[in-house]
Computed example of a mutant assay.
Amino acid sequence: MSNETLNIWTHFLPTWYFSWKLLASLWVLDVWSDSYTWPLVVFLVSCCIYPFTSSCAHTFSVMSTKARHICFFFDYGALSLYSLGSAIAYSAYSFPDAWLPSVFHDWYVPIAVVNTVISTGLSCYSRFPEMKRPQLSKVMRTMAFTYSYLFDSVPLFYRLYICAGEGSAENTVNHLKHIVLAVLTAFLFASHLPERLAPGRFDYIGHSHQLFHICAIFGTHFQMESITTDMATRRNWLAASTPRPSFRLTFGAFATSIVLSLMLTAAFSVALCRKTSCPGKEKPR
Rank of each mutant, 00 (worst) to 15 (best):
T10E: 12
L13M: 06
P14D: 08
W16N: 09
L23C: 13
L29R: 15
D30A: 10
D30E: 15
W32Q: 15
S33W: 12
S35C: 07
P39N: 00
V41R: 08
F43K: 08
I49Q: 12
P51K: 06
T53P: 01
F60P: 03
V62E: 08
V62A: 12
R68H: 15
F74K: 02
D75R: 04
Y76M: 01
L79V: 15
S80Q: 02
L84I: 07
F95G: 01
S102R: 07
V103I: 13
H105N: 05
D106L: 11
V114P: 00
L122S: 03
R127V: 03
K132I: 02
Q135W: 14
V139G: 04
T146R: 06
L150T: 10
D152Q: 11
P155D: 07
Y161E: 11
S168H: 00
S168V: 01
T172C: 04
T172N: 13
N174G: 00
H175G: 01
L176M: 11
H178M: 14
I179V: 14
T185D: 10
A186G: 12
A198P: 03
F202G: 08
I205M: 14
S208G: 11
I214F: 11
C215N: 05
E225I: 15
N236F: 03
G252K: 12
A253L: 03
L262R: 07
M263V: 09
T265K: 04
T276P: 05
C278H: 14
K283R: 15
R285W: 10
